[in-house]
Amino acid sequence: MSDNQLKTQIKEMIVERLFLPVDPGEIEDDENLMESYEIDSVNLFEIVVGLEEEFEISVEDEDFSVDLFATIDSLAEYVEQKRG
């Protein structure tokens, strides 16, 4: 899967799981998700579950940081790293 495909898939997952009223394509790769979409702890939990279920990775407790969830870029980098 290409980098762009992965980012598109992450955007689709976030929009779907958080019931966001935006088109996934409107989300910029380097946009701050928490500020732009008012993402809170409930949303972050959903994103973690989504990453694990849809990308078949395990998000470790020690990996949790605000920076990880900040942008599509950071999430895609994390997924790629976890997939090895």
Binding site: S41, F45, D61
Partner: peptide
């Protein structure tokens, strides 16, 4: 486990 994670995420956001 999920509930403990939820607490962890809340704590992370509170710190943030």
């Amino acid at each position: 486990k999920q509930n403990l994670r939820r607490s962890m995420i809340k704590a992370m956001m509170t710190r943030h």
